[in-house]
């Protein structure tokens, strides 16, 4: 089993089990162990495996060579520099901003899991939060110190860090476009894994999942299928300038200037609207290929919501 933990989490399904062991790579705060125990509701052996690419390599070795007797190993890595050897060799977290990454190594010790989507340091909060909810439990009432990591020095020195807006306590609450947490969660399989429904009667794909075929209207015989996340075709583009953004994106425009939103065709006639990230607005054109990755989308109810964004490049 080499499925990335982030994917298991994104699946939001009951098959996700409490890991037998957790390995931490990176400058997680001292509250991390306590929070993880709260999160999973039980004391799990947690080992810190250093920081950076050295720590990552050590953790990967541990996962492979000394499998946990108690089950899956969950490896959490944060703030690993984009230019680390592991990144270049394709086994570590990628992304320009020293990303958070998480994946599991099985008890059988599959050598090296595939690199998974870079998010950012804040991603840890959301992923554990979602995992917790997926298992039908309320999150702990109070977090100890939070999950937030200090700013990534390696990313800052690489000049690749984007301004990260912070959410003021209690706000902002959108009055015009409001998605309560349960409604956001309802769509997570489509949002995170591009889950779609194939109609066994007419063959059409419905995305996001609507429990009803968008072409023939049938609600029976819909089979879940996953659309590609590693590449899509740009079919439309727009650069949103100041004043063109919904209020939820005010801070993004104020902090980072105009941003690009593109319509990406994942398979013929199935499209998704994505923000372009880690690239200059206007730098992709209709007909280009893009990849997608899990990122922070927008704040609501005092939390960040996560979903996919587009990054440049992708398989031919």
């Amino acid at each position: 089993m080499s499925v990335a933990a982030i994917e298991l989490l994104a699946e939001s399904s009951a098959e996700v089990a409490v890991p037998g062991r957790i390995l931490l790579v990176g400058p997680f705060p001292s509250t991390a162990e306590a929070n993880l125990a709260r999160f999973f509701g039980s004391a799990i052996p947690i080992e810190r495996s250093g920081t950076g690419s050295v720590g990552l390599t050590a953790a990967l070795r541990t996962a492979r060579d000394a499998p946990s007797a108690a089950g899956t190993t969950l490896l959490l890595a944060a703030d690993v520099a984009a230019d680390s050897p592991d990144t270049r060799s394709g086994v570590g977290p990628t992304g320009p901003d020293g990303a958070i990454a998480a994946w599991s190594a099985s008890v059988a010790g599959v050598d090296v899991p595939p690199p998974i989507d870079p998010g950012n340091a804040h991603g840890a909060t959301a992923l554990f939060f979602e995992w917790h909810r997926a298992r039908g439990r309320e999150p702990p009432e109070r977090w100890v110190g939070g999950w937030e990591l200090p700013p990534s020095s390696s990313a800052a020195s690489a000049g690749a860090s984007r301004p990260r807006p912070t959410i003021p306590p209690g706000g902002p609450v959108s009055q015009g476009a409001y998605v309560p947490m349960p409604r956001y969660e309802e769509n997570l399989p489509s949002r995170w894994r591009f889950a779609a429904e194939k109609c066994s009667a007419c063959g059409a794909l419905t995305f996001p999942e609507r429990r009803r075929c968008r072409v023939c209207g049938r609600s029976e015989g819909l089979v879940r299928t996953y659309l590609p996340r590693d590449g899509g075709l740009v079919v439309a583009t727009t650069t949103i300038g100041p004043g063109g953004q919904p209020t939820e994106f005010d801070e993004q425009v104020l902090g980072g200037g105009p941003y690009e939103v593109i319509l990406v065709e994942l398979v013929p006639e199935v499209r998704v609207t994505l923000q372009l990230t880690d690239a200059t607005p206007g730098s992709v054109r209709i007909g280009d290929r893009v990849r997608t990755s899990l990122r922070r989308l927008y704040p609501m109810e005092g939390e960040w919501r996560y979903g996919r964004k587009a990054t440049r490049g992708g398989p031919g």
Partner: peptide, 19 residues
């Protein structure tokens, strides 16, 4: 600007940053 986008798709289009 809250209100200008309320009649489009909220979850997939507005909250990707579109009015």
């Amino acid at each position: 600007r809250y209100w200008l986008g309320v009649s489009g798709d909220t979850e997939w289009e507005r909250l990707a940053g579109l009015t």
